[in-house]
Design a protein around this nucleic acid. Structure first.
Lengths: 123, 123, 123, 123
DNA sequence: GTGGTCTAGACCACA
DNA sequence: GTGGTCTAGACCACA
């Protein structure tokens, strides 16, 4: 369910956070279902438990999961973090548009490419 | 001409590279015109000369500038780096679309926002 | 009579202690009436009997209940623990005021909010 | 400037976060002034750098400070986290009022105590 | 030198 | 067993 890409420049904990966000948003992990335990997932991925711990702490801060001491971590029912996440996403998109404009990439070029990428993944 | 934003999360050298790229692409810095010397710019911005050096080295590798030993750095005539830069940009855009799709952001939402940002900055 | 809120950050045993304190203080559980047995309550709430045991032990230490060997746990007649409980509560309130003052929350703001909360719950 | 209380039940990183919040909110640490480096503070307090790192990361997430790679951590100009902090505080106060009501502590008792504590610290 | 990430491993509270 | 906190110490990017 979780795969680490060591070629990826992002830190491991960020990859894990990102992966769980997707699984939760897509509904593959249902509300109140239990996540793998810190130690178990650490073993499976052969990484340090602290790294998983960090990822879970971030997911909790973002409102995606909630911990029960002595029991484990569970998927939250109302994902509070979502709108904040999206706001951050649109900020990034804005930066990207600015970057494109600064380099003379036209609106049409930008839009066509984006549309294509949306299409590709859909197929 | 160059401003460092310390609130910006990107490293200083990256901000400098980015800024010069824009100045060159927009034609504000003409071909063969001289860039400020490493030491001078470092003094002006009160930052470490190593940081400027790193930025200039990257700009050179990307084909935006060329050095003449003992004289300084100059803006390249044919910007070889541009298409490569753009290729990298489109890779990032693709990642961004993937991220959006994973979070259930629709094509329409994405496109509308992007269009708006293009519009905003134009004004 | 007892409900566990898994979203609650407090440990389960603390929630149980708190709930019984309220039931006893409010007189819903009368003096000398019997509490559910450790095993029965554990079954009902589907939690570990150790957790109930811990809660009952704490309630006994605080003077809210007394055990009779082989028979069970019963509500105390004179709740010795109450003044001690209240003392602890006022300590917490003091910490809260200190926290508020440190953050520049004015006395008036504090009092108004507290008054409102008292009002709300009364209704 | 920072003191660790080992009798305090709260974890060390939380004490550090709390202390810096107060220093920043009270204006003792001015905007853009530099915090002690992770390693230096760790040495001074004889605790592990990771613990300081954790505290600084939290302060950053709350918007109290911002990091510059290779330079250090600095006090933020606009403390975004403040209103959120206060909202959380009022939630806690609400819980406290609920607790008091459940134990039969009257509004008047509550208010008088709070007022006294405000007075005490003022003196 | 400065922060950021990660590993290895310990100890604690809770269930 | 489960998460939470902490220490010790390494390696990296950045300045």
């Amino acid at each position: 369910m979780i795969l680490i890409d060591y070629q990826d420049r992002r830190p491991i904990y960020e990859q894990i956070v990102d992966r769980f966000q997707v699984l939760i948003v897509k509904g593959i992990l249902k509300a109140d279902s239990q996540l793998p335990s810190v130690r178990k997932l650490a073993m499976e991925l052969s990484i340090n438990p602290n790294t998983i711990q960090k990822a879970y702490t971030l997911l909790e801060q973002q409102g995606f999961i909630y911990p029960i001491k002595g029991r484990g971590n569970f998927v939250a029912q109302d994902i509070e973090g979502l709108s904040e996440q999206n706001a951050k996403f649109y900020e990034d998109l804005k930066d990207m548009v600015k970057y494109a404009m600064d380099r003379g990439i036209s609106k049409d070029d930008f839009m066509e490419h984006a549309a294509t990428y949306y299409g590709e993944e859909r197929a």
